[in-house]
Computed example of a mutant assay.
Amino acid sequence: MASTATKQHYDVVIVGGAVNGSATAYFLANNPDFTGSVLVIERDWTYAQSATALSSSSIRVQFSNPINIQISRFGAQFIRDFGQLMEVGGDTPDLNFKENGYLFLADQKGFDVLKRLHQTQLDNGADVTLMDTEALVRRFPWVNPDSLAGGTYGEKDEGWFDNYGIMNGFRKKARSLGVEYIENEVVEVLRKGDLVTGVTLANGERISCDYIVNTAGTRGPTVARMAGLQIPVEPRRRSLFVFACHTPLEGVVPLTIDPTGVFFRPEGHLYLGGTYPKVDPEVAFDDFDVLHDEFEEEVWPILAERVPAFEAIKVVNSWAGHYDFCVLDHNAIVGPHNEVRNFLFCNGFSGHGLQQAPAIGRGLSELITYGQYRSLDLSALSYERVIENRPFLEDSVI
């Protein structure tokens, strides 16, 4: 049932209350230099179909762009400190961070790319080890090295964690700091010239504001269009499969990515896996059908070839989630529209939203409070690159 706001005006209205919306709300409310009011509007408090809830919930520093590396390095430390930072009433949430790293496997062509990226990663403080096949098999003996030339492994700041936990931690802490949350849906963005002035909700309620932050996930383009704006973002389906293995792998098992794009990681005593689909069309908001043939035809054959123990596996669970996919360059669009300066984008994460939420939320709060970035300069992710059709390319996309 829709809930109503307690006031008619807020300094900041955040549309979408999952991890990025709640991270932005937290960083605003936690900043003593910000003295305004914040309203978070979320259409579904179950968050059941949010990208946050349906994510594989992992973080990595193995990117090609320095800013993405820095975003994740901050995120990993934030995840480690999360319990202390999000403490409310003596409750310190534990995200159960499994810092097992990412293992990128590569054929000769891909290994040349990994070597190039490795230097960029080292230059930006990432702890990543470059391995030839001999070193690879010595460290991860369950890998079949056929067709491989080597790989890279993240020694630190990479792994997986509790996706619901990080969202709920941000949300609970933000509310304890005075942020107001309502369960409702924005149906209209009010605009006067080059300023947005407020929103209309599904129950007819009108709320005025000084800033709008669009953290609506796959519905982000819809919210933008309400303000007469456009972003190159669309929903793309990703199917995930949980499987049991007759012979569990021994030793440390990272999130492992085959050169084909097939990946897996431990999930308790089970394993979670999937792939970057070869056919990847836009899907409807409500299309969460799992592509079971994808596992049989694309995922399992590669798993069985790369990890001999995976010849005997059984799928025990599966689900599909959506990427808010940036078709320009697979990177997020963050910050103000070039003309409508009080409409802030936080869209198009293309599968990286959960891991990037701490740094992005902090950055947006700085823009609102100070008019500029003070920590990490996120201007490379700005909307201006969309206008100029200037992709911010990332070589390491999963």
Rank of each mutant, 00 (worst) to 15 (best):
A174F: 11
D107M: 14
L328M: 14
Y383F: 15
T4K: 14
P145E: 10
N338D: 14
V253I: 10
Y211K: 01
P32R: 05
A126L: 10
V397K: 15
V290R: 03
R237G: 05
T215V: 09
D162K: 08
S50H: 08
N144D: 09
K7H: 12
L272S: 04
V290E: 05
V179K: 05
E339N: 13
N31E: 00
G125R: 10
N65V: 09
G75T: 03
V143R: 07
Q355L: 10
F111Q: 11
Y164D: 08
S22Q: 03
H269A: 12
Y370H: 12
T369C: 08
N31W: 00
G353A: 02
N68G: 11
V327W: 02
L195T: 09
A320K: 04
L117M: 13
S64L: 08
S318F: 15
L130W: 10
L201K: 00
K173R: 11
T369L: 08
D94A: 15
P221Q: 07
I333E: 05
G348L: 06
V262N: 07
G110Y: 07
R43G: 05
A126R: 07
L240T: 11
L272T: 03
V340F: 08
F34S: 02
E99M: 10
S365H: 05
K109Y: 08
V88S: 09
G154K: 03
V113K: 14
K156F: 09
G273M: 06
N347K: 00
D33L: 13
V283P: 03
Q70W: 10
E366M: 07
R171G: 08
Y373D: 06
V242M: 06
G90L: 04
E282L: 02
G351T: 01
A244K: 15
A359T: 04
A332R: 01
L95A: 03
H352I: 03
A216E: 06
A202H: 09
Y164C: 01
R390C: 14
E42F: 14
A23N: 05
V38P: 01
D94T: 08
H269M: 12
V290P: 00
L270I: 00
P221Y: 07
V290S: 04
Y383P: 02
V340R: 01
T6R: 12
T4N: 13
G165E: 07
W300N: 09
V253D: 04
Y373G: 03
L378K: 03
S37W: 05
V223M: 06
R362Q: 10
S56R: 03
D146E: 11
M1W: 12
L270G: 00
D210A: 10
V252K: 12
F288H: 09
L190K: 11
D132M: 13
S350R: 05
G198Y: 04
V38G: 03
R362P: 00
A312L: 10
T197I: 10
W319I: 06
P336E: 11
P281C: 10
L354W: 02
I257N: 04
N31Y: 00
R385W: 09
